[in-house]
Amino acid sequence: MEVKWTRKDLLSLYDLSAEEIVFILDTAEEFKKVSERNVKKVPALRGKTVVNFFVEPSTRTRVSFELAEQRLSADIINVQASTSSLLKGETLLDTIKNLEALQVDLFVMRHAAPGAQNFIAQNTRCGIVNAGDGAHSHPTQALLDMFTIREKKGRIAGLKVTIVGDILHSRVARSNIWGLLKLGAEVTVVGPATLVPHEFESIGVRVTHNLKEAVRDADVVNVLRIQHERLNAAFFPSDAEYARFFGITPEVVATMKPDAIIMHPGPINRDVEISSLVADGPRSVILEQVTNGLAVRMAVLFLVAGCVKK
């Protein structure tokens, strides 16, 4: 395979070219086969040490990364904020520098502050894979979403993708928007004006507040989670009202194109942003996204590990 990857970090899809994104997706296709074998393990990261450094709680993403690392035969350390020295007053950079001194190779890092991974990446020789930084970026989620779209639809260019819900606080939305635009999709965002800022129009995203109109012609509908933990002020009156006007119900699905697929990054608030009937229904590819996440994360870890200098 021709080497097209030169980065020790994956911080944001904004930084990547379309070619680099496609290269990750192609690499992930190869790794997907690994998990379908009898022996689900390859020695690609044998002898490398990966630190899963989660300063913000996570189960799904951390487990997905950890399994990806295991299947690549890496050595793994898990550090979580509750057990880390950050609580003892050490700065984030000092904590990273101490781990770096233990000769680790990669950090998979989640942090509540946007740009925290960018800051750390500038100050360490280790590779940084962003597993989510505030509302900024969650590149592996967007890559697995795009992987799933490509698998289901055969392409990304020219597709109409509608992202529904809390765009304002969503790193998933921001990463999907950059990635999809770079690969030539048409992106619409929809939700109440409190959660869907018009500023996204400046980069070529269609912004609307009318759900039915936004999903009517869509090939892909990506439904975002209502993140109660980030909604620290009044953005909408109640879950019930949100569900009534912006929830993806069977009635909404009935107005969509017959071959449109429905995605959700999880975890789902059932019957708030998406009805159980839809989430578990035939259009839903939600669990396939989870499966693909593993392949995408294996690909990303493999590529960045190859660029970390000793």
Binding site: D133, R174, I203
Partner: peptide, 18 residues
């Protein structure tokens, strides 16, 4: 101001900063 740290505008929205 809330928990804002940069100017609220196009860039803060695109970068997901408060």
């Amino acid at each position: 101001k809330g928990s804002g740290v940069v100017h609220e505008g196009q860039l803060s929205m695109l970068l997901g900063m408060n």
